[in-house]
Design a protein around this nucleic acid. Structure first.
Length: 924
RNA sequence: GGGCCGGUAGCUCAGCCUGGUUAGAGCGCACGCCUGAUAAGCGUGAGGUCGGAAGUUCAAGUCUUCCUCGGCCCA
């Protein structure tokens, strides 16, 4: 074989500096710095000025601690929404915010005090609040940098904080709207109370854990009854909270429950009243003594029966009669079927007693000790103590001892296992405790004629939920929730700015309220606590007649008011209310989605949002919840440092975020692989277009069918992507995009046109058409990718257009919808499927090493029956030639291989010589 | 304990509402090709008792019930 020249230098290979290896972790910070330097966010606002708005309102994360993977997902999703809406051409501002008040921060400051051995109560409240403020500010700064690093674009220089004076003033104003409209009331109700933190807790602040408690059976001697046999008998109640016995006021029974009177076998000793179904269990607790039923009575017959407290000899409160009252919640699941009622310390007790005119007595002080003037175990008594103290309640503790001495303690054991609520911060047990609290009524008709609950429910009906099941979830919660408890007995928060009289009525004067709001706007929450209240009251009222309320608002009220102080305040003029979208985790059905809805419905009669998008929780690789104690957490910062933020963003947009979803090393590896393929497609396009000149451009009508088919596919993709954006369906979006890049482009179009790109003459119309389409594809794909791979898209864009502005200022690509209508569409779909079949036919010959490249194959097939010719299909299938035949077969070609284009063609004289086309191109 | 939700190839997901050919895709993996997208590109292939059990039906990944595992919220 003669020595043939090397034609490599005559081939037009792709040329680009765009590296295959991304090095995102190193590159991204530089891109971020450039965006910031050029004020990309500001430029984008300018560019979209006057356009249709899309308002995504940010739910504020709590300003405490570094961000975790859940925050990352949430913020990335928000950024995907904002960027994709902006790509559509809308003006989609994003104002991030933070939730700054509340117990967790207070707790951190108190913890610092404890370390320094300082007593919190000795620190002036204003100083304490300042420290909380500083602490929140510090974490806002930390989290801001962490969020920015994710590539989240927004008005980071001007976020909203719930502790801004403006915000606090608006929160106060919103609160006073509830007061002025009469939806606010002061009530006394048992609320979850933490004696350690000396505060009422929200449900969200409570967690349940298994504990061992003391269970006791206590006898209440019956003194009066319509049923004569009952007089002198002992009603038996069972409880796991002995400390509530000193506050007992009644005994509840179930009307439909059957009760037995039982007594020792020998007919001596006391007679006990217990539910028939439960007396065996009762007997077991008594030590399996022999008992027998001597009579039975239906629950409803117990009405009018009266017992006396075991400690009635103490007189006063304890000497009062303890009536039997009917209550629906009494069951025969456990206990004795008779339930001792302490309206101070149980929600059910409270309501059952209220119906019978029995009011709470407020026996337990805020630190969990019976008040000083209580007759049994009062503060100061040497045996007194915190009522949740284990020893206090134990079978040898003061309560049990006194009951035993009084002959009323029938059984006591310290090993009862059950789930019990604890404060999620201090992990200490909490109690129900009746205290004066401020409430918002759910069920009183307002001016509209509808109650707050009804308004909220009808607004839920008109909101769009993604996914749809969120509607049901929010609905059932709003349907079932009790009145909203607004008050907290804490320091770090927005004050409940009302003046109350002794009966709980509050001053309701718009002029006073206006002065209060103004004061808070100037001086923040401290303005209330340190106010000259007489000045606020003016001349009309005297401070002597009013008590200044010092409670603060539930933090959910703060964040529930963000629509007022962010969307409506005018501080961010490009916002408006209601928002187009609220986007948060599914846990916010109980939280922000609901508090915002109630706040807005109570003050404006409508929801503050049009759409509600919920995402699930991020779990570990095995589907378990991440927790520090399990050691299965994944730090977003580490992922960014190793893989880059674009990988995390791509992950967030591929998982089904509407459900709970997973993350782990293997998943991230998959995401990285997906990223690499996409990146390489961009690299190829950049290389292929490196010297593309506008003069090369060819009109679509003059293009080969293959080019027009690809434009058709692009137009289909375009429609799919647009729809996905409107549905917030990012997994569908990314899937469609990557499938297109991998299948339609890399494995099909690019592969087929490689010969054309490398070997045809630069002015060949086919090559020009191909590059024209490549250019169109490039412009479309880099834009499509930009919301997701915000850094990489910028890198791609800047590689091709170093002097242009950011890719993120660009709008949705100019893909002509008419391309969707392609007259040869069916034919080309068939070509694609037959191409697949053809490669399968070639495969055996490759496996047997008869041929190596498909270019060596000649294909026999019933091509005359098909709507395309031999030449077309040979090109598309990348084979040497196609011949008509009845059945499929493949044979190695006899032709020689062109030394330049490597095709095996009849006009090549010997291997390494040039084919006619190549000879012409290089002018040989 | 209650309400709601989920469990389809190694991974991420379609299919389930409106039961009906051998359950699909991409990635990964294995093998092969190419060595002019080269730590890339192309091809072929293996891989699933659709969480488990029962039921309805001529027919169930798809409908029903129970169980199990996991999640969110609540008690």
């Amino acid at each position: 074989m003669s020595e043939q020249p090397d034609y490599k230098d005559t081939v037009f290979l792709p040329k680009t500096d765009f590296p295959m290896k991304a090095g995102l972790a190193n590159k991204e910070p530089g891109i971020l710095a450039r965006w910031e330097e050029h004020d990309l966010y500001g430029k984008l606002r300018e560019a979209r000025k006057g356009r249709e708005k899309f308002i995504l309102h940010d739910g504020p994360p709590y300003a405490n601690g570094n961000i975790h993977i859940g925050h990352s997902l949430n913020k990335i999703l928000k950024d995907l929404v904002a960027r994709s809406q902006s790509l559509l051409g809308k003006d989609a501002p994003y104002i991030p915010g933070w939730d700054c008040h509340g117990l967790p921060i207070e707790w951190k400051i108190e913890e610092q005090y404890r370390k320094k051995k300082r007593n919190k109560d000795e620190v002036p409240a204003a100083e304490f609040r300042q420290e909380c403020r500083d602490y929140a500010a510090k974490w806002v700064d930390v989290q801001r940098e962490e969020f920015k690093r994710l590539g989240v674009m927004g008005e980071w220089d001007k976020p909203y904080l719930t502790m801004d004076f403006d915000a606090e003033a608006t929160i106060v104003a919103e609160f006073l709207k509830f007061a002025e409209s009469g939806q606010l009331y002061r009530g006394a109700k048992p609320v979850m109370w933490s004696p350690v933190e000396k505060t009422a807790l929200a449900e969200a602040e409570v967690e349940y854990a298994d504990v061992q408690s003391t269970q006791i059976d206590v006898a209440f001697e019956i003194t009066e009854s319509p049923i004569p046999e009952l007089v002198g008998a002992h009603a038996v109640i069972w409880t796991t909270t002995p400390w509530t016995i000193p506050v007992n006021q009644a005994i509840a029974y179930g009307e439909g429950i059957e009760y037995d009177l039982i007594q020792a076998l020998d007919g001596t000793g006391p007679v006990y009243l217990v539910a028939s179904e439960l007396w065996n269990e009762f007997r077991a607790r008594m030590g399996n003594i022999e008992l027998t039923t001597i009579n039975d009575v239906m629950g409803h017959m117990l009405a009018g029966t009266i017992a006396r407290h075991p400690m009635h000899k103490l007189g006063g409160f304890f000497a009062n009669p303890r009536p039997f009252i009917a209550a629906d919640h009494v069951t025969t699941e456990a206990g004795t079927g008779l339930v001792h009622m302490a309206p101070d310390h149980g929600e059910e007790d409270f309501f059952a007693c209220k119906e019978h005119g029995i009011d709470p007595v407020f026996a337990v002080d805020d630190d969990g000790v019976y008040r000083e003037d209580w007759l049994w175990l009062p503060r100061g008594d040497e045996r007194a103590g915190n009522v949740i103290n284990k020893r206090f309640n134990s079978s040898e503790g003061p309560i049990c001892s006194d009951l035993r001495e009084a002959g009323a303690l029938l059984s006591a054991s310290d090993d009862f296992q059950h789930s019990y609520p604890h404060s999620w911060r201090s992990k200490a047990k909490v109690i129900y405790r009746c205290t004066p609290q401020w409430f918002v009524r759910m069920d009183e008709a307002l001016e509209s004629g509808k109650t707050l609950r009804e308004t909220a429910l009808s607004e839920i009906d008109t909101t769009r939920f993604v996914p749809e099941r969120g509607r049901k979830r929010l609905r059932s919660m709003v349907e079932g929730r009790p009145d909203w408890v607004l008050s907290r007995q804490r320091a770090w928060g927005v004050p409940i700015t009302v003046y109350a009289d002794k009966d709980g009525n509050y001053l309701n004067d718009p002029e006073v309220n206006a002065r209060i709001i103004e004061a808070v706007r100037n001086g923040g929450a401290d303005a209330w606590f340190a106010a000259d209240h007489q000045a606020l009251l003016g001349n009309t009222y005297s401070l002597d007649d009013w008590e200044v309320v010092t409670d603060i608002l539930d933090v959910w009220f703060d964040s529930g008011s963000t629509h007022a102080f962010v969307l409506e305040s005018g501080k961010w003029p490009n916002l408006r209310s209601p928002a187009d979208l609220y986007l948060e985790g599914s846990d916010q059905h109980r939280g922000w989605f609901q508090s915002s809805l109630l706040e807005s419905c109570g003050t404006r009669g409508r929801a503050p949002y049009k759409d509600v998008l919920t995402h699930g929780m991020t779990l570990d690789a095995k589907g378990f919840k991440m927790s520090k104690s399990l050691g299965n957490t994944l730090d977003p910062q580490k992922i960014i440092d190793v893989n880059g933020a674009d990988i995390l963003r791509l992950w967030a947009s591929t998982v089904d975020f509407t459900e709970d979803h997973r993350i782990g090393p293997e998943i991230l590896k998959g995401v990285t692989d997906m990223y690499r393929k996409l990146r390489n497609s961009f690299r190829y396009m950049l290389g292929a277009l490196s010297d593309f000149d506008e003069s090369e451009r060819v009109a679509v009508a003059d293009m080969p069918e293959l080019e027009r088919y690809v434009l058709h596919l692009l137009a289909e993709l375009d429609a799919t992507l647009k729809e996905a954006v409107n549905d917030y369906a990012f997994p569908r979006y990314v899937r469609a995009l990557t499938d297109f890049a991998n299948e339609d482009l890399s494995a099909f179009f690019f592969d087929i046109r490689k010969d054309c790109l490398y070997c045809d003459a630069p002015d060949d119309p086919k090559r020009r058409a191909y590059r024209t389409v490549l250019d169109t594809l490039f412009h479309a794909l880099v834009r499509y990718a930009s919301p997701v791979l915000c850094f990489t898209a910028e890198e791609v864009w800047q590689t091709r257009y170093p002097d242009a502005g950011s890719i993120h200022l660009e709008e949705w690509p100019a893909v002509n919808p008419e391309w969707r209508i392609f007259e040869h569409r069916e034919k080309w779909n068939e070509i694609v499927s037959i191409r697949k079949h053809a490669t399968e036919q070639i495969e055996p010959l490759r496996r047997d090493k008869i041929i190596r490249s498909s270019l060596e194959a000649e294909l026999y097939m019933p091509i005359r029956d098909m709507p395309f010719d031999e030449e077309t299909f040979a090109e598309v299938a990348i084979v040497a030639a196609v011949h008509d035949a009845k059945t499929y077969s493949v044979k190695k070609t006899d032709h020689s291989k062109c030394g330049r284009c490597w095709r095996l063609l009849p006009d090549v004289e010997e291997d390494g010589a040039l084919c006619g086309r190549c000879a012409e191109v290089i002018g040989a």
